[in-house]
Simulated assay, not measured.
Amino acid sequence: MKANSVSEALEIMKTVRFPIVTRTNGGGGGAGIRKWDTKSELENYLHSREELEKQTLFFQEYIQGIDASATVVCSKEKTAILSLNKQLIGDKLLGAPGDFAYCGNIVPLEWDMHLPAKQKEFFVDLMTKIKSLFLQLKLTGINGVDFVIQGTKSYFMEVNPRFLGSLECTQIATKQNLVKIHLDAFHDTLSVKEPPRYYRIGVKGILFSNVEKPFPVKKYPTSKWIVDRTHVGVILERGDPFCSIVLPTISATNGLEKVHTLAKRIQRLNAPRV
């Protein structure tokens, strides 16, 4: 459901069950998404605003579970899943600017979970549904879909018809040349083996500034895992992306700990003087 005005939003509120999530049609990476536990919280927020700032407000059911995504490649007639990915959402150790901010990935998702027999059947069924979805959409090249896993159920959230933030981790985990796979798909060539075969784990964390006052980037520790660096001297404000940390590992837990440790070093080196 969506509303283009405060009055429309107030009417929709009468028909939904809380908690809910609202999101705007602007921004990405979790920007503009808010969770409302009670009707009165959202009602007070809406009454404090005269208009929705020329944005559409979308209402979604709040589903608590494992935040995940799939990296998919499509040709004209075929679809293959390259990886299933765990999403890092709202990671405060990475300075997440909001509870729903996208902060990175762990690939593959399956290696980060204990999978009994029924759960393995669930993943087979999930991949079948994902492939069916993309065959209907008739997209070409590498695309993605976000979903939430709750028990043995999956809830699709949104399709991302573009190159994905998880691609570095997919390439680390599968040792495949994703650029070549993407280009080959446009020539109707899909030489991808299924189910996906993983050789190791790829972990990516996006570090955000969590400092209240603007400050210039000073320096980075010596590490080949720090990429997408904001240049030294650039002024960062709270919530601005600082850099990404991407590394291979054999343990999802240890890999994420390494990302958090490196993020803490970067924050310490660049902390403004009081």
Rank of each mutant, 00 (worst) to 15 (best):
M1V: 09
M1F: 07
M1N: 02
L10V: 00
P19R: 03
I20M: 05
V21P: 01
R23Y: 15
G27D: 06
G28W: 10
G29W: 10
G32H: 14
K35N: 00
K39I: 00
K39P: 01
L46D: 14
S48W: 01
E50N: 09
T56I: 15
F58R: 05
C74F: 13
S75Q: 09
E77W: 12
T79Q: 09
G98N: 04
D99L: 15
F100W: 07
Y102H: 13
C103V: 06
N105I: 15
I106Y: 11
V107S: 06
L109F: 15
L115F: 15
P116H: 08
A117N: 06
A117C: 12
I130D: 07
I130R: 11
I130K: 07
K131C: 01
S132Y: 08
L133W: 00
F134G: 02
Q136F: 05
L137T: 01
L139K: 15
T140H: 13
G141H: 08
I142Q: 05
G144Y: 11
G144C: 05
I149R: 00
T152Y: 06
K153R: 10
E158W: 11
V159H: 07
V159T: 02
V159F: 08
V159Q: 06
R162Y: 08
F163M: 02
G165M: 09
G165C: 09
S166Q: 03
L167D: 06
C169F: 08
Q176L: 12
N177V: 10
N177F: 08
V179K: 06
I181L: 13
I181P: 14
D184G: 13
V192D: 02
P195E: 12
P196V: 02
R197I: 05
Y198W: 03
Y199E: 01
I201E: 00
G202Q: 11
N210Q: 08
N210S: 13
V211T: 09
V211S: 04
K213L: 11
P214H: 00
P216K: 09
V217P: 02
P221E: 10
K224I: 12
G233Y: 09
R238D: 12
F242A: 15
S244L: 12
V246N: 07
T249N: 03
I250A: 02
T253G: 06
G255H: 11
K258N: 03
H260N: 08
A263H: 03
A263V: 12
K264V: 09
Q267G: 02
N270W: 10
R273S: 03
R273A: 01
R273K: 10
